[in-house]
Design a protein around this nucleic acid. Structure first.
Lengths: 294, 294
DNA sequence: GCCAGTCATAAGAAAAGCAGATGACCCCTT
DNA sequence: AAGGGGTCATCTGCTTTTCTTATGACTGGC
């Protein structure tokens, strides 16, 4: 018994054009079809909306008032629908992303630049967190996507590999160990190291590699931010153990990097999403730019 | 291409109940029907609104956001429609009425009281004006109804008789003329008179009656408000010539009224409305109470 | 008095919407 | 591990709605 959208449009068009025929034209309808819509609206409401004369239909007070209300409602509806379509077309939207700090500093800036170029209307709400938190944020839904590393499979999460990351030794070019093309865990364990925060997954990775070789590293310094760690290394305070991907940057010319002989220093960086939860168009766009070799 | 109201209701119900089946129940639909509505809405918008799992449909972010917007729009629409129905049912509404001052003081109070009793929600916007203005106000549309007296027929206006009004002589009980049961125009022309404003239709009526008998009245006083005229008569300053209908009131016991022998002192009070303009339900209700002998 | 313009009506056709039956899937229980 | 209950999707035939075309009725102007 509530009027249909067609009837709302019919009334507003008829009042605005002042003629059933012109209103029908505007709505791409035949004039009888519009007449019927108006009549049924009148019956549904129990109010007469127009005074029909031989030279046009004059809206009654009720008709004019209703047309205005309906026009406002239709405009609101159209705005909402357009907004949804904008998001579907990736011209707008937000995606909440939880990401490891190491990745945020390396892979992400380029990806976000590509996203901005391809879809300028999409915003990314970034949250950096250690690996466990990344998974938790995605699971609880406060992040639609996560970038973490492969862990024990969680039934609620689905993982898609993004790239392989590797911890490499970072050291000043004039450091004694820089003479060797590759380093061993033993060599590293015997020298002062610059490591990251004990909470970080990079640190856990390093600890695990040393432990499996029966070694105990000598952390001389711990830094929360990678830029700090790099500065410490550059100051000659120790040898860093940092993601290879991070070393592509401006740091490179000033520091030497050397691979380390340990398969355990590798890790797979993966994209995390809630299993069974479909992705927003904005998230799909983000995923596309995260996989440059796709 | 814009979604239908059914689809809006389907989405809000599905999001609120968290289940297609329960939503269908709420909308008195079968579950397949609701599924179809949701699917077509998704296709129309290009967005997936639910993540279907085997144990229910979980709204996506887009689905939840749209449901809220749609809910707001539907509530607004329902309010507008309810308002229109209220007016149709005469439980609300406004009617603009232009009325002669003489009638405003006599017939109208009772009619408005009856209207208030029968339809407490209807408001009357009252405007008193002389006869010509009453007609003009109705013609230009700023009054939906008018109460005036019969004039030269206007093609744009339609007249419905309400009652016959008659000017009677009003005088103190101890006035010499009060001894006679009926008065003549000649007798009145020979005595000082209390008349109304020269602009008023009552005055025009009196003047015409005297003129057609070849007489010239002697207006001793002119009053704009009828209550003033009555006060002047009571003070013994002259004989009044006022509508009989006005004399039913509290004035009666203190003053005598006498009919005057002249058919020209009668006039038909009519209801005026724009020809071809339908009436609002509120106006119809007012008309009903204006015709107590209907 | 006819002509042009308006809205209303009628009839057949097209489209949309619906209910009921059924299927696929998953979780949970036994 | 098999079955039961609950979910949503699909299919089919029918009903209801909606549309177009053709036509009528009315009015105002030339």
């Amino acid at each position: 018994m509530t009027p249909s959208i067609r009837q709302l449009r019919a009334l507003t068009a008829a009042v605005e054009t002042g003629s059933f025929g012109r209103a029908a034209l505007r709505l791409h309808l035949s004039q009888p079809a519009l007449t019927v819509q108006i009549r049924e609206l009148e019956q549904a409401l129990g109010v007469s909306l127009f005074d029909r004369t031989a030279r046009g239909a004059q809206p009654t007070a009720a008709g004019a008032a209703l047309a205005e209300s309906f026009g406002r409602i239709l405009a609101e509806l159209d705005a909402v629908v357009d907004g949804a379509r904008e998001q579907a077309a990736r011209r707008a939207g937000v995606v909440h992303l939880a990401v490891l700090p190491s990745v945020a500093a390396t892979l992400l800036p380029g990806a976000l630049a590509r996203l901005k170029a391809a879809h300028p209307g999409i915003r990314v709400m970034l949250r950096d967190a250690v690996a466990k938190r990344v998974g938790a944020l995605v699971k609880e839904g406060s992040a639609e996507l996560g970038i973490g590393h492969a862990t024990t499979p969680d039934p609620e999460l689905s993982e898609t590999p993004l790239f392989e990351d590797e911890l490499v030794a970072v050291l000043p070019p004039d450091h004694p160990l820089a003479a060797r093309p590759r380093l061993t865990l033993e060599e590293l364990a015997a020298t002062p190291l610059v490591l990251t925060d004990p909470e970080s997954s990079l640190r856990a990775l390093a600890e695990a590699a040393f432990a499996s070789a029966g070694l105990a590293p000598r952390p001389a310094y711990e830094a929360t931010y990678m830029s700090t760690a790099v500065a410490l290394v550059r100051a000659g305070l120790g040898v860093g153990l940092l993601p290879a991907s991070a070393m592509d940057l401006r740091v490179a010319p000033l520091l030497a990097t050397r691979p380390v002989d340990s398969p355990l220093l590798r890790r797979r960086i993966v994209l995390l999403r809630r299993r069974g939860a479909s992705l927003s168009p904005a998230a799909e766009a983000l995923i596309e730019v995260l996989q440059p070799d796709d």
